[in-house]
C-alpha cells in the first residue's frame, strides 16, 4: 500500500514541464549562472529598463531639472509632430542614412573584392591603410574635414580644381553641407571593408570553379556566388551602419555646433536628430520634450531594424552548418 503511494507521483506525470522548471531552479548550477549574469541583469534594470520607463514617463511631463515635473499629457508628442525643426532634423538624418549606408557598403564591397583579388601580403597592407582613418578620434575627423571641405582653400576643392570643377562651399553653403558630411562619412568605412573582406576570404574557391565551368563570367560569378555567400555579412553591416547613421552626432556636432558662429553658418542643414535631442535636453533643459524625442528615435530605429530583418530573411543565405 505504502509502496504504491510512493510510486504514483513518480509514474503518473513523470516530469511535467512545470516540475522540470522548478527542479532546474533549485539546482546550484542555476544559482551560479545567475551569479555570473548578475552584472548584466543589474545594469539592464538600472541603466536600460529603468531609464526607458523613466523617459517614457518623463515624455508626458514638463521637466527642467530645477522645478518638479508636471504632467502635461501628450503635449510633447503633439509638439514633436508640429515642430518644424524636428521635420528638418528627421529629413537630414534620413537623407544621410539613405545615401550613406548603400554608398558606403557599395564602396567598401568594391574595395574588399579588389583586396580579395590581390590576396597575400599586399591585401593585408592595404587593409591596414583603409582601416587607419577609422582609428582617428571622431572629433579629430570633424576638425580635419572642416578644413578639407573648406570652400576656398580646402583639399577637396583643390582636387576638384584639377579637373576644372569649381567646388562649392561644403561647410557653409546650406545646399552643400549635407553632401560634405556624406563625403566625410566615406572616409571612415574601414570597419566595413574589414568585415566584408573577411567574409569574401571565406567563400570556398570551388564554387567559383563550378560557376566558371558552367560558363559564368566575372559579373555573374559576383552576382550568383559572391553576393549570396557573403549576404550574412552584408546584412550585418547594413543593420549596424543604419542604426549608427540614424544616431549621427559627434562629427557633425564638432563641425557645426557648440559655438555661435558655425551654428549660424550651417543654418539647419546640419541639424541631425540626436543633435536636436541633445540641444533640447541639455542646453534648453527641456527634459520632457527631449524624452519624447528619444522615444520617437527609438520607434524609428525599431521599425527600420524590424523591416530590415524581415527583408533580410528573404535575401540572406545561410549555410546549412553553423558558421
Amino acid at each position: 500500500m505504502s509502496a504504491a503511494d510512493v510510486r504514483v507521483p513518480l509514474a503518473a506525470p513523470p516530469m511535467t514541464r512545470r516540475r522540470r522548471w522548478q527542479a532546474a531552479w533549485r539546482r546550484p548550477e542555476t544559482r551560479w549562472a545567475y551569479l555570473f549574469l548578475l552584472p548584466w541583469i543589474l545594469g539592464f534594470l538600472v541603466f536600460t529598463a529603468g531609464p526607458m520607463l523613466a523617459s517614457l514617463v518623463l515624455s508626458f511631463t514638463d521637466y527642467d531639472v530645477i522645478n518638479p515635473a508636471t504632467y502635461v499629457g501628450g503635449e510633447n508628442y503633439q509638439r514633436m509632430v508640429e515642430d518644424p525643426e524636428v521635420r528638418t532634423a528627421l529629413f537630414n538624418t534620413v537623407l544621410y542614412t539613405v545615401i550613406h549606408v548603400p554608398l558606403s557598403i557599395a564602396i567598401a564591397l568594391a574595395l574588399a573584392v579588389l583586396l580579395n583579388q590581390i590576396g597575400g601580403r599586399f591585401a593585408g597592407f592595404f587593409r591596414t591603410v583603409f582601416y587607419l582613418p577609422a582609428m582617428t578620434p571622431t572629433v579629430a575627423v570633424g576638425v580635419l574635414f572642416l578644413l578639407l571641405l573648406n570652400g576656398q582653400n580646402g583639399l577637396v576643392n583643390a582636387l576638384l580644381r584639377l579637373f576644372g570643377i569649381n567646388g562649392p562651399a561644403w561647410t557653409t553653403d546650406p545646399d552643400w553641407v549635407r553632401w560634405g558630411i556624406i563625403i566625410m562619412s566615406l572616409w571612415t568605412i574601414g570597419g566595413t571593408i574589414v568585415i566584408l573582406f573577411a567574409a569574401l576570404k571565406n567563400v570556398p574557391n570551388d564554387l567559383y570553379e563550378a560557376a566558371r565551368i558552367d560558363g559564368a563570367g566575372a559579373w555573374r560569378q559576383f552576382r550568383e556566388v559572391t553576393v549570396p555567400m557573403i549576404s550574412g555579412s552584408l546584412f550585418f553591416v547594413t543593420i549596424v551602419n543604419t542604426i549608427a547613421s540614424l544616431q549621427m552626432f559627434t562629427e557633425v556636432y564638432t563641425m557645426f555646433y557648440g559655438n555661435a558662429q558655425s551654428e549660424l553658418q550651417a543654418s539647419d542643414s546640419a541639424l541631425f536628430y540626436v543633435i536636436y535631442l541633445f540641444q533640447q535636453g541639455f542646453q534648453f533643459l527641456e527634459m520632457g520634450y527631449a524624452s519624447a524625442l528619444a522615444w520617437g528615435l527609438f520607434a524609428i530605429v525599431l521599425i527600420v531594424t524590424l523591416v530590415q530583418v524581415k527583408l533580410g530573411d528573404r535575401f540572406v543565405y545561410y549555410e546549412g552548418d553553423d558558421r
Binding site: 548584466w40 539592464f44 538600472v46 541603466f47 536600460t48 529603468g50 531609464p51 526607458m52 523613466a54 523617459s55 518623463l58 531639472v65 542604426i243 540614424l246 544616431q247 540626436v274 535631442l277 541633445f278 535636453g281 541639455f282 527634459m287 527631449a290 524624452s291 528619444a294 522615444w295 528615435l297 527609438f298 530605429v301 525599431l302 531594424t305
Partner: peptide, 22 residues
C-alpha cells in the same frame, strides 16, 4: 534581451541616466 539591447540607441536612455547620476 541582451541582443535586443544592442539595437537600443544610447540616446533613448541618455536623459534618465543623467538624472540618475545627478
Amino acid at each position: 534581451l541582451v541582443l535586443g539591447t544592442m539595437m537600443l540607441p544610447a540616446a533613448v536612455t541618455m536623459i534618465p541616466t543623467f538624472l540618475i547620476w545627478q
